[in-house]
Structures are given as structure tokens and as C-alpha cells.
Design a protein around this nucleic acid. Structure first.
Lengths: 261, 261
DNA sequence: TAGTGGTCTAGACCACTCC
DNA sequence: GAGTGGTCTAGACCACTAG
């Protein structure tokens, strides 16, 4: 049990036990539980540095290290004099600009429209399972399945096929997705998700070409987005972007983290 | 001019002047100059923490903060007892697995082969300029232009078109690229580059389809990789991956930096 | 065993911004 | 004006590993 300097005696929180993990790592996990678990809602104020330090029985420098890390990773925002707040999750990432389809279309000056094709609670069919290739346990027979098309102005440009895990997001069972786009709705409803993207180029099938008003065999960008919280998978979506009109931009530095110098 | 605690008097380095930027930010820049500028070669040992701290006239904690940041960003690696070393640049990123084509093919158990189609020192033609859409100043009339095909076993799978800036990399003028793949060679020769990727799906033109042994109009993944050091652009490459065989994987967390929780 | 990085503390000053 | 985060210091102990 490490105890540095003139370590405090008063046991304020049981955080100094079980060694083999650094103090700030353990404290960070505790705070992350509050943030990701939803105990601290997005926008809520976090106790001030000195208070947190006291409550965990650590020095302010140590607490500052934890909070600085959380801030760098985007979980909280900090302002002098005002305090520390739980961040509002942003739509994916500045590194990979594909983000919310709504924002993407708005940036082009066009009006975005979502058109629902199907909304059901059922297991996946065999083709859908092949498309989504999800971490979905094969036994999952109650999924919220959503299909629809995104329009930019009057032009269809993205066909979406999505499965939502009702265990991770029960609210999806009561949402009809008639007018709300499932991607944005999920971002607002289930914060703190992590997404993995797989990107391919494929030729549009006849059915897909019809939906997107393309010629048969036109090249499309297929993005498979698998989304999870730290605990469970939330949703798997296949976004098929029409033709050469859409592109992805990603920037990377030397490290392996995606940070530019 | 900030001077905290019992600040030292002995002027060891002129680093404590010009305020309005934090101490460790200025020190970090100095070290980065050495690393990126090539004064400290990849693999070389960096002075130990206490030495650096003394030479800049700062406390060890402050120096540690700088070194920890550089380590997190991938510029250096640190080992207890052994010391701190300038990192060897890795092939792009663990976030975005496309990396060196050589490694990619090797991972599939196939033999990689590079076949040169053209190597010249000349300005870009109009089509090439359209393809590469580079930050290349239009006036650049002495570029190293390389075209070739990557094979996996006996199957061609990637057509590469590349321009290299001889100002940023004079060694390219003396390299014939007959047997060495330009991407890997550049990584080994010009360390500490940053790359921006743009990804699209396009239909292969007739000429491209012939090179890649595809049918006309087959969907291909086009990756435009623009690479630069902090000072200048180094190379622009267009990699055309054949068909549905290749895909990209990228993972993102909430923050906007590309870090998973 | 000793060198090196990793972590922690208590105390201090500074700068920003809301009141 | 005063609360809050941002930064810096000097000193200390610990853990890992090369020799």
C-alpha cells in the first residue's frame, strides 16, 4: 500500500487500498463510472478540484492530473472561475468528419430529410446479419430494426440499415423513428459511446441503386459503424453513401493515437 | 515573467523569458525541434530527466510533464533504468489500419511485390494534378513522380500514383524505386510525418481496371494520402485499392481525438 | 545494486472571469 | 473582489530492470 510524503491518516474514501494500480488511475475510473454510468448527467457541474481532492484524500496536484486527463479525453470541460462540467458528447469526432448526417448535410447548405422505410422489433434476417456482421449475439431475437433513407434536398444520398440493442437502450422500444433520425437520437440518448468504423467500396446492388436513384453497379462507400458503451453494444449501422459524392477525411500524426503535432 | 516558488537564479538556458506561453509548452517545442528536425535521430538516447530539468533550469516535475506528453504523443519511448529514446516512427497508426502495404500483405500470409511502372523527375500532367489534388504549388516543375502496382502473391491489388517533393526529400532524386516501395522508403527516410487521408469510392476506369485485373466499373477504394512534416509537404499519393477485398478500420471515442476510453 | 522513470505531496503564485 | 482552474517547485518514495 503506497503512501507518499506525509500521507494523510483520515480515511476519507476507500481509494488508497489495493495497490498495483496508480492512485490517479483508480480515481479516474471512479469518476468515469459517474460520467459514463449517467450518475453525472451531461452538462452537470462536477465538484471543484479542492473538494474532490479532499474527498478522495489526495493532493490537489494528483486530482488535477486526473481532471486534466479527463478533459483531454473529452469527458469534461473546465472553465476558470465557473468550474468543471460533464461534457456534452459530440457527434463522433473532429478526426473523422462523417459525423451526424444531419450536420453533414446542413454544412452543404441543403435541407436534410429522413425518410423511414421500416421500423420493427424482431430478430435479424440472414441477409441483414451478413450486412451488419455485428457483435450481436446470434440469440438476440428482440432487436429494434430501422431502415431508412437520408435526403439532401430532394436527392437521396444515404441508405441506412440499423439494429439497436434494447437491453442497452430500452427507450428505443418506444421511439417510432418516423421523424427523428436514429443516429442523432442515439447520440442524444445514449451518451459516451465508442464507435468502430469499417469502410469499404462496393458496387450498388439493383435494390440499393433503386433506393438511392443510381445506376446499377455504381460505386458506393459503405460504412459499418458499430457502437458500444463500456458495458454493452448499443447499435450497429450500415450506411451506404451514394457514389463519388461523399468522402471521408482523417488525419494522423506519428504516435498511433490520431493526434497531429 | 512568471517565477514560482523559490525560483532559481542561475540562468541555465534562456527559456524563462517571453511569457504568455507556459513553461512546459516552450520546453516541449524545443525538444520537438530536436526530434522532428533530425538533430536527435530515431533510436538515439535523450538525456535523462534530471539532466534535462537542470539544463532548462526547471523542476523535475515540470520536465516529467513534458516528457510524459511527448511519450503519449509517440515521439519518444521511455524505459525504467534504460532511459528515454527518440521513437522510431511507426507506419501511420493503430487507429487507422492501412499502414504500410507491405505489412498489410504480410499479415495475410501472402508475399508482397512492388512493380514499378514509371519513375521520372518532371512536373505533373493535368490528369495527375486532378488526381492528386495536392498542396503542391502549381509552379513545382521538378517533382519525383512514381507509379507502380502492389501485388499480393500474384494478384495485383493496389495502384499507386505518387509525387514526392525533392525540396523536402532530396534523397528521392537518387532513388530509382525499382525494388523499394516508395511508401515504406519514405517512412524510413523522412521520419515524423503527418498524414491526411481522404477516402472515396469510385468506379475503376478502363485503364485502371486493366492494371488491377478487374472488370470495368468495379468499385474501388481510393485513398488520397497527403503527407507533410511540420515545415513542408513531402509527398502526395493516390492509392487505388481493388474492389471489395480491402477495407479500413478506424476507432473513435467521445472526445474528438480518436482515443478509446 | 544502482540508475532511471513513475508517482505523490504540500504549498505557492498566477490569470481568468463571473459577480 | 473572490472563486476556480493552471502552473510550478522541492523533496520524497517506489518499481522496474540492466549489469
Amino acid at each position: 500500500m503506497p503512501s507518499y510524503g506525509t500521507g494523510r491518516k483520515r480515511s476519507v474514501e476507500v481509494i488508497r487500498n489495493r495497490a498495483s494500480e496508480t492512485l490517479h488511475a483508480r480515481i479516474k475510473k471512479r469518476l468515469l463510472d459517474n460520467i459514463v454510468g449517467g450518475t453525472w448527467k451531461p452538462g452537470a457541474q462536477v465538484p471543484i478540484e479542492t473538494e474532490l481532492a479532499a474527498s478522495f484524500g489526495v493532493s490537489r496536484m494528483t486530482m488535477n492530473k486526473v481532471l486534466t486527463q479527463l478533459s483531454n479525453e473529452g469527458y469534461i470541460t473546465r472553465h476558470k472561475k465557473r468550474g468543471t462540467f460533464v461534457a456534452r458528447p459530440r457527434s463522433q469526432s473532429a478526426v473523422m468528419e462523417i459525423a451526424s448526417i444531419r450536420e453533414e448535410v446542413a454544412a452543404l447548405g441543403e435541407r436534410h430529410r429522413w425518410s423511414l422505410l421500416e421500423r420493427a422489433v424482431r430478430p435479424l434476417g440472414p441477409e441483414e446479419r451478413a450486412l451488419l456482421n455485428p457483435m450481436v449475439d446470434a440469440a438476440a431475437d428482440r432487436l429494434v430494426v430501422v431502415r431508412g433513407v437520408h435526403f439532401s434536398g430532394e436527392v437521396p444520398f444515404c441508405h441506412e440499415t440499423r439494429a439497436i440493442n434494447p437491453r442497452a437502450c430500452p427507450a428505443a422500444l418506444e421511439q417510432d423513428f418516423e421523424t427523428v433520425e436514429p443516429g442523432q437520437w442515439l447520440l442524444d440518448t445514449v451518451p459516451w459511446i465508442t464507435a468502430q468504423h469499417t469502410i469499404r467500396a462496393i458496387n450498388a446492388s439493383r435494390a440499393e441503386a433503386r433506393v438511392l436513384a443510381l445506376d446499377d453497379g455504381q460505386a458506393c462507400l459503405e460504412i459499418l459503424r458499430q457502437t458500444r458503451t463500456s458495458a454493452d453494444w448499443v447499435t450497429t449501422a450500415r450506411l451506404l453513401y451514394s457514389g463519388e459524392a461523399h468522402q471521408l477525411v482523417a488525419q494522423f500524426g506519428p504516435g498511433g493515437r490520431g493526434n497531429a503535432p
